[in-house]
Simulated scan of single mutants.
Amino acid sequence: MKKPFIVVALVAGLVIAGLLYWNSRQEDAPSTLILHGNVDIRQVSLAFDGNGRVAQLLAEEGDAVKAGAVLAVLDTRTLALQAAQAQAQIAVQEKNLLRLRNGSRPEEIAQARSRLAAANADTYLANQELLRLQGIASKTAGRGVSVQDLDRAKSSLQVAKARGDEQQKALRLAELGPRAEDIAGAEAQLQVSQAELALLQHQIDLGSLLAPADGVVRSRLLEPGDMATAQRPVFALALTQPKWVRVYVSETDLGRIKPGMGARVTTDSHPEQPIIGKVGYIASVAEFTPKAVQTEELRTNLVYEVRVLVDDGRDVLRLGQPATVELDGGVAP
């Protein structure tokens, strides 16, 4: 009966000893993970979308700029003259299209009718002259009128009839007005000219280099008079947001952090004014890859990049500045 009791007592003793050892390890393990790194921010190389000569630079190195601020301007005088020419051409085409849509004026129709009436009168006179000559010829057995006079009278009548037909068709066209195809063609030509003007205006707008976001000018790479291209940056802009501290965590501490974990960031310049942040990125691949065949010791030397995002409302952090990161409760979840 004593043997089972002894076994139970031994098992209980081992369990208690294990718990005491685990608690002592937990007490010895630091609750705060301290890491060291450098401040990092995004940078933008600003260049014009097209080619041209730099006319003005409106920012200096170190200037704080707001999103949408004009930083540089190209010489766009040639484009402006082309735009003015296109605008004048559009005005002419608009008037022409309006004329086609309105059709013939009443005065033009009245003028066409008058011309038709005159042509009909000429036809009547030519016909009367021919009848008169034919009557004389019939009474005199052809001796009172020459053959040439009769032929000339017949030709005059034919010419008068042709002119009358021409004036009749002209009156018809005036009454119908322009063809639908002519109006559509004028509209299409106007649209082409408007698109050309819009393109010129867009190119003029691209002559102003705008800041894409709030930031600080780090470098001024061109000067007024330089030729700018899409491949030649004019400014290097450091964005004020977002900012983060890039730190590296050893493989043994990797399990103690997780995304979203709260952090405090301090610098040598403001050691008593921590900046609140949080873990935003944990690399899934080691920064430096050891040999293919690893020993237990080599695996513990691996480091992983971690980015701690910070809300630097006072704008005290600078690019590359050393910083200390404290992660509270740096324990694996």
Results as ranks from 00 to 15, higher is better:
327 L>A: 03
15 V>K: 05
113 R>D: 06
245 V>K: 01
140 T>R: 13
198 A>P: 04
211 A>W: 03
138 S>L: 13
123 T>L: 15
86 A>I: 11
319 L>N: 12
131 L>W: 12
246 R>Y: 05
211 A>I: 00
40 D>Y: 11
9 A>P: 02
239 L>Q: 08
34 I>M: 12
225 G>W: 00
54 V>I: 11
253 D>C: 02
86 A>T: 14
311 D>K: 12
114 S>T: 09
303 V>N: 11
99 R>W: 06
233 P>V: 00
134 Q>D: 12
316 V>E: 08
275 I>L: 07
183 I>T: 09
231 Q>N: 09
43 Q>W: 01
309 L>S: 07
2 K>H: 11
192 V>M: 06
178 P>Y: 00
189 Q>N: 14
157 L>T: 00
292 A>N: 12
232 R>M: 06
94 E>T: 14
285 V>Q: 13
194 Q>T: 09
60 E>Y: 14
228 A>R: 06
188 A>K: 10
231 Q>A: 11
243 K>R: 11
181 E>Y: 03
115 R>E: 09
247 V>K: 03
232 R>N: 08
17 A>V: 07
226 D>P: 08
154 K>P: 01
133 L>H: 07
166 E>S: 13
257 I>H: 10
117 A>K: 12
6 I>G: 00
150 L>R: 06
121 A>Q: 10
82 Q>H: 10
92 V>W: 08
223 E>W: 06
78 T>N: 15
180 A>P: 12
222 L>P: 04
149 D>V: 07
92 V>T: 14
232 R>L: 11
222 L>D: 05
160 A>V: 01
117 A>M: 04
114 S>R: 10
12 A>W: 12
81 L>M: 13
247 V>N: 01
143 R>Y: 09
153 A>R: 03
142 G>P: 03
248 Y>S: 08
323 A>C: 03
134 Q>P: 01
89 Q>N: 13
84 A>T: 13
250 S>I: 05
244 W>I: 01
277 G>D: 01
112 A>I: 01
66 K>I: 10
202 H>Y: 15
303 V>I: 08
219 S>C: 02
56 Q>R: 15
232 R>H: 04
148 Q>Y: 05
57 L>R: 15
271 P>Y: 06
315 D>T: 09
74 L>K: 07
93 Q>H: 13
207 G>F: 00
291 K>Q: 14
267 T>M: 08
295 T>L: 04
125 L>V: 14
264 R>Q: 15
252 T>C: 00
48 F>C: 03
112 A>W: 00
